[in-house]
Amino acid sequence: RRKSKRKPPPKKKMTGTLETQFTCPFCNHEKSCDVKMDRARNTGVISCTVCLEEFQTPITYLSEPVDVYSDWIDACE
């Protein structure tokens, strides 16, 4: 008699959501930077609500707010 092989359980999909508020690289306030994605103009704007620092970068249809933040961090270095 042959043993029946069980199929492995399906893999769980990533359910965690990406951050939309970030720590400002200038004033170091946590969750003080908000990202606005202007898909019509293909630009992402991130601004700090505390020190009013602002950064704008081009985006694509695949871009997420975390991509705008990482572009800002890269531009600071």
Rank of each mutant, 00 (worst) to 15 (best):
L62E: 13
E19C: 05
H29D: 10
I46L: 04
T60M: 04
P58G: 11
R1T: 13
I59N: 00
C51V: 00
I59L: 07
T17P: 13
M14W: 10
T20Y: 06
R2Q: 13
S4I: 08
K12M: 10
R39K: 14
K13P: 09
M14L: 08
L62Q: 15
G16T: 10
G16C: 07
K12P: 06
T57R: 11
S4C: 02
S47W: 10
N42R: 09
T57L: 02
D38H: 08
E64F: 05
W72F: 03
Q56T: 12
R39S: 15
C76M: 15
C51G: 00
C51M: 00
D74I: 13
V68D: 01
D74E: 13
F55A: 02
C27T: 01
A40M: 14
M37I: 04
K11P: 13
T17L: 06
P8V: 11
C51A: 00
W72N: 00
T23N: 15
M14Y: 07
N42E: 15
D67G: 05
S63H: 13
A75Y: 11
R2V: 12
V35R: 01
I46W: 01
T20E: 08
K3E: 15
K5Q: 15
D34Y: 05
P65K: 13
K5W: 02
T49C: 10
N28G: 09
P58C: 14
V68Y: 00
K5V: 03
C76D: 14
R6A: 13
T23A: 11
K36C: 01
R6N: 15
N42C: 14
P9I: 15
R1G: 08
E64T: 10
Y69E: 03
V35D: 00
P58I: 05
P58H: 14
C27R: 00
S70K: 15
Q21S: 06
E30C: 00
K3A: 11
S4H: 04
C48A: 00
D71M: 02
R2H: 05
D34L: 09
V50A: 14
K36W: 05
P9Y: 14
Y69Q: 00
I73F: 08
P25T: 03
S70A: 14
Q21G: 10
W72I: 01
T60G: 07
P58K: 13
K11L: 06
P8T: 15
K13N: 12
A75C: 10
K7G: 08
D38N: 15
E30W: 06
C48V: 00
T57Q: 05
P10C: 03
D71W: 04
T49H: 05
R2T: 14
R1V: 10
T20G: 12
A40G: 14
N28K: 13
S32D: 03
T49V: 07
D71C: 11
L62I: 08
N42P: 01
D71I: 08
K5G: 12
K31D: 08
I73Y: 09
Y69I: 02
T49F: 06
E53P: 01
P25M: 04
P25Y: 15
K3Q: 06
A40C: 05
P58T: 06
S63T: 08
F26P: 00
N28S: 15
Q21M: 13
A75D: 08
M37D: 03
C24M: 03
S70H: 11
I46G: 04
E30I: 15
Y69K: 02
D71A: 11
C27L: 00
K3L: 09
K13R: 07
D67H: 06
P10D: 01
C27K: 00
I59A: 04
E54D: 12
W72A: 05
K7L: 08
R6H: 09
R41N: 12
V35F: 06
V45K: 03
K12R: 05
F26L: 11
D67E: 10
R41A: 11
Y69S: 02
I73L: 12
C33A: 10
R39I: 14
K5S: 10
E53K: 10
K7M: 09
C24S: 02
Y69P: 01
R39Q: 12
F55D: 01
P65A: 14
T15S: 12
K11Q: 08
C51E: 00
V66I: 04
S47T: 10
C33D: 03
N28L: 04
S47V: 12
V68L: 07
P8G: 07
V35Q: 01
E64N: 11
S63F: 04
K36G: 03
Y61K: 15
I73W: 04
V50H: 15
T60F: 15
P58Q: 12
I73M: 12
A75F: 12
G16V: 13
F55H: 08
F26D: 06
P10S: 08
T60D: 14
A40R: 15
G16D: 08
A75M: 13
K5D: 05
S47E: 15
L52W: 06
V66S: 13
D74S: 14
K5H: 09
S4W: 05
N42G: 11
I59D: 04
H29L: 04
E19N: 02
P65R: 08
R41W: 04
K31E: 06
M37K: 01
C48L: 00
P65W: 02
K31L: 09
P8I: 12
R2I: 01
C76L: 13
V45N: 09
E30A: 08
D74K: 10
L52V: 08
T17F: 13
M37G: 01
G44A: 06
T57A: 15
M37V: 03
K3P: 03
K5M: 14
L62R: 14
C51D: 00
H29S: 13
D67Y: 00
C48K: 01
H29E: 12
L18S: 13
Y61V: 12
F26V: 11
F22Q: 03
S63Q: 06
T60L: 05
T20R: 10
K36M: 06
R39H: 15
K3C: 01
N42D: 12
M37P: 01
S47R: 14
S63P: 02
V68R: 00
I73C: 09
L52E: 10
V66P: 08
L52Q: 12
S4Y: 07
D38F: 04
S4F: 09
S32K: 06
V35Y: 03
D71P: 02
R41H: 09
D67V: 02
A40T: 02
V66H: 09
T43L: 10
T43A: 07
W72C: 06
P8F: 13
N28D: 04
R2W: 03
R2A: 07
V45R: 09
F22Y: 14
